[in-house]
């Protein structure tokens, strides 16, 4: 299987006042297409930052990031935006749906950036809603849905443009146990049956167990060894 994500020597610094904060230090990572990876670590260790970099939402201070053939570190904002629209689906802890649009329209939103006709957009959105098991809730606005349902809509939205990569930042962080299990099951299905590559940040070891591999971060470094057979990680990064 081919490589989908490659981070080489990635560093990220933020300025907090005059002080430089190193959030990611020399992160190296390589992820194959079709992998399901959980990213764990204490709060503030840089998980969201790494996810944002891989999702093309932010640029590294130094180092190279290549995802699905595009060098994100050197791409401009415009090409990053259209790349995100095609290649990445985002799932956030707080769903981030647009409250004024119903579920169907929320799911259709990313398709407005494509050339699809109105009826195709409608059809694809309906299909995505069907995959997450909410085909009967298309007309509901987010406020009329439970947390778990809203997260399903968000997952449908992430899926609808058929990206190869899903990045999920604590997707079950705001949900109760049972609902969380359902969402994780859904992600697993997407991974197994649709072959999506999933990168998921979580605090929950049970959630992490759903993934094929778990990576651990601490103080801006990837520290853990890899659990699982098939992931090609370069030695430097696998050593604590």
């Amino acid at each position: 299987m081919s490589e989908l994500i490659r981070c080489t020597n990635v560093c990220k610094e933020y300025l907090r006042g005059a002080e430089k904060v190193e959030v990611l230090r020399n992160v190296d990572l390589s992820v194959k297409r079709g992998a399901f990876i959980a990213l764990m670590g204490p709060s503030g260790s840089g998980k969201t930052t790494l996810l944002n970099l891989i999702g093309g939402l932010d640029a590294p201070t130094s180092g190279e990031i290549e995802v699905d053939g595009l060098r994100l570190d050197s791409a401009n904002a415009r090409s990053l935006a259209s790349w995100r629209a095609q290649s990445v689906g985002f799932v956030f802890q707080f769903y981030n749906l647009l409250p004024v649009l119903n579920a169907q329209r929320n799911v259709e939103l990313p398709l407005l950036l494509t050339d699809l006709s109105r009826s195709e957009r409608h059809k694809n959105a309906a299909l995505a809603l069907d995959i997450v098991g909410l085909s009967d809730r298309g007309k509901h606005k987010p406020g009329e849905l439970s947390g778990g349902q809203q997260q399903r809509v968000a997952i449908a939205r992430a899926l609808v443009s058929d990206p190869c990569l899903l990045v999920c930042d604590e997707p079950t962080g705001d949900l109760d146990r049972t609902t969380a299990e359902e969402i994780l099951e859904l992600l697993q299905t997407l991974h197994r049956e649709l072959g999506k590559t999933i990168l998921m940040v979580t605090h929950d070891p049970k959630a992490a167990n759903r993934a094929e591999y778990t990576l651990h971060m601490d103080k801006g470094k990837l520290v853990s060894t890899v659990e699982g057979p098939d992931l090609e990680l370069e030695p430097a990064r696998t050593v604590a």
Partner: peptide, 14 residues
């Protein structure tokens, strides 16, 4: 603000 950021995340241009 969060909604507009979400739209940008989805690939809508600035």
């Amino acid at each position: 603000v969060p909604e507009l950021a979400t739209m940008k995340t989805l690939g809508f241009s600035d």
